[in-house]
Nucleic acid binder design. Structure first.
Lengths: 189, 189
DNA sequence: CGTATTTGCCTAAAGCTATTAGGCAAATAC
DNA sequence: GTATTTGCCTAATAGCTTTAGGCAAATACG
């Protein structure tokens, strides 16, 4: 059999696609090898381990999500920025559930610091510039926004909202509105 | 070897303990068998499959958490109830990280309906009675509270807040205060 | 162009988890 | 005190992970 042309890069991209199709924790060296039509062992020249592969997918997804959020935030401020941030976040999770799940992988501190985690933190802080909130409240607010968005997306994805007839879309708008109002009230007078 | 006295009940309880020690997704039929000093296969008389075991642990944890929340809510209303609910939720996750992770297992609708999921929804709604919020806002608010609490606990557990010096405890209080203020403002005049 | 080296993919092999089928003996029922 | 249930077992299959070591295609370079 000729060479397929595997690289770490290609494996991670394919892994991300696989994650979206079958779920992040079903991403396996074996499944990936099948997808490329090569033997399982061949992947070990490109990734150190299954864990290593998953870390790679996580970093890739974090970068991709950060790019999207950055795009969404460009030229916006205040509530506009807040809504755009929220939408970028949620849309990514809906389009790429597996990659979104990957972003929640627990990374060791060094790996996380090297990745796009910093960009995410900075962008969340950037939103708050429109609300005039000083430290340490700013950090509290960053944590709250992160919690709401991640929590909502996570609950929605796991089917937590499917028992009521209320449109999740409306809840999402209501929440964004509420957060905006809350942040305005919290502004440092 | 004599009989050890396995039952489905005991397996689920031990599985919950194991989850807290090594993480919910490291809970495995094999590990559980080792813990009881019996052969792996012996567990199959009591649980149908690995998935079945995990579902059992999830339902157990949901029940336990609902009990705690119910205790916390007893005799409280308004912000008091909100804070107690939040604390019960977060404390459970900190004391029992594996069980908390189990509560997030995706259950098929029937299983979920049969479990304590309903109690959780009712209790969250009960909190809002102190805020005079009518439908459909009530549902939006329920979703928001669920999102914040779950999101915060989830991010905190995965180390997401360890990069800043700001005390997570303070952020938590700030968030509860903010939610209280927000709900009061949202009250149906 | 031809030799040398790198490197991509392979076979072999061992260890862990999940799961099914079927057996024996301890506990229990009558 | 026999009969039946049932708890734990051995045997066996199958999938995922990972290490060690091999061969040949691609590439480097004189």
């Amino acid at each position: 059999m000729g060479r397929v042309g595997l690289t770490t890069e290609r494996l991670i991209r394919a892994g991300a696609e696989l994650a979206d199709e079958v779920g992040f924790d079903q991403v396996t060296i074996s499944a990936l090898a099948r997808r490329f039509g090569v033997k399982v062992v061949s992947l070990y020249s490109h990734v150190k381990s299954s864990q290593d592969l998953k870390t790679g997918i996580a970093l890739f997804a974090l970068e991709e999500l950060a790019d999207r959020v950055a795009d969404a935030l460009a030229g916006r401020a205040g509530k506009d920025a807040l809504a755009a941030f929220a939408a970028a976040y949620r849309d990514y999770a809906r389009e790429h559930p597996g990659r979104y799940a990957a972003t929640r992988l627990r990374l060791d501190p060094e790996t996380a610091a090297a990745g796009a985690g910093v960009r995410h933190a900075q962008m969340t802080r950037a939103i708050l510039r429109g609300y005039d909130i000083a430290e340490p409240d700013q950090t509290h607010a960053v944590r709250m926004l992160g919690s709401v968005f991640h929590g909502y997306v996570s609950l929605e994805m796991s089917g937590g909202f499917s028992h009521t007839a209320v449109d999740p879309e409306e809840s999402w708008s209501w929440i964004v509105d509420s957060l905006d109002a809350m942040l305005r009230n919290r502004a440092t007078a």
